[in-house]
């Protein structure tokens, strides 16, 4: 098991490295004259050259990448070209906001999708039809459109919730939870509808397996078959579904934060993208990939625990 984890961790590091090389190359070669962009159209060629030197842009790409990598390994992701704030600092203040929402939404998705999906698979009938229809509706309406309508109707028109949620945890847990409610709902609806449907098919697939019939023939009760055998075998598929949803959510949360004006990663990423603030963009990408790698590692470990075959090989 330790060897297995080490191997997965190793491949995660390789992925991180490859993504950083690709992103760095793409950002720094495709985005035209960066210094000109920062200084504006009125800047003289001398000013531009000076700025390029200041930012290290006159160095070859190779050198620049490795100096970035060296700094990054020591925890220094550079500073914003526009605000001069260290990227690591802005990330550190914003990650908690974003991740709180993402994990709150994920936990709720996992619970709701599992309950509804399993019920639909076992009971069929109306629950099943609701899940099918829900999945179609959920697939048809992007989460941010749901977010926009939640704000418009519940916050602006009915005034039930604050439209923007810049409140920090210090104002007291109640106000904070209220302010987080709408963004989290906007984040989780697609996840619940899609997840329930996929968990449903994973469970049905297991229920149709030969060994389930054999367990029945041995006199094992339906409840025990479902909870001990079927759900355990369906769990890896469910975990994969949830981990893919989490990856998608890391993107989706950017728009949701923008809608609700939350001080998370979203506004930072959007502003940096609009201004071509490359150190910040680079930092956002790296943080995202690290989260993904950690999540995938956790899923692999859980799967190893659930499936003895993975554990052995």
């Amino acid at each position: 098991m330790i060897k297995f984890i080490a191997k997965r961790l190793g491949s995660g590091v390789v992925v991180l490295f490859v993504v950083s090389v690709l992103t760095f190359t793409l950002l720094y070669t495709a985005s035209g004259s960066i210094a000109q962009n920062i200084l504006g159209d009125q800047a003289t060629p001398e000013q531009v050259a000076a700025k390029e030197h200041e930012l290290g842009l006159d160095q070859p790409l190779f050198t620049r990448y490795f100096s970035w990598l060296g700094d990054a390994l020591s925890g220094n992701l550079g500073a914003s070209w526009f605000t001069n704030e260290p990227v690591a600092n802005s990330l550190a203040t914003r990650i908690p906001v974003t991740m709180t929402m993402v994990f709150a939404a994920m936990i709720l998705i996992a619970i709701c999708a599992a309950l509804i999906g399993v019920a639909a698979a076992v009971r069929r009938g109306w629950v099943d039809r609701v899940v099918q229809i829900g999945a179609i509706i959920g697939d048809s309406i992007p989460g941010y459109v749901i977010g926009v309508f939640l704000v418009t109707i519940l916050a602006i028109q009915l005034g039930m919730f604050p439209a923007t949620s810049t409140i920090s945890p210090e104002v007291g847990p109640e106000a904070w939870v209220v302010s987080m409610t709408l963004p989290v709902i906007a984040l989780l609806i697609n996840g619940v509808t899609g997840g329930a449907q996929q968990i449903r098919s994973a469970v049905i697939k297991q229920l149709e397996r030969d060994y389930v019939r054999t367990l029945r023939s041995r006199g094992i009760g339906e409840r025990e078959i479902l909870f001990k055998h079927v759900l355990r075998s369906a769990a890896p598929a469910g975990l994969t579904v949830l981990s893919l949803q989490l990856i998608g959510m890391l993107g989706g949360v950017v728009i949701i934060e923008q809608i609700f004006a939350l001080p998370g990663m979203g506004p930072l990423a959007v502003a940096a993208t609009g201004q071509t603030d490359l150190p910040v963009v680079m930092g956002v990408v790296m943080y995202t990939v690290v989260v993904v790698i950690v999540v995938n590692l956790l899923v692999d470990i859980l799967n190893g625990w659930l499936n003895p075959k993975v554990r052995v090989s």
């Binding site: 985005s31 993107g251 990939v289």
Partner: peptide, 21 residues
């Protein structure tokens, strides 16, 4: 494939937007 699938779509598009306009 495993790399591509571990990249959130919107984050990639933000990067592309930063690079290509």
């Amino acid at each position: 494939v495993s790399i591509l699938m571990s990249l959130p779509g919107l984050i990639v598009l933000l990067t592309i937007r930063a690079a290509f306009g």
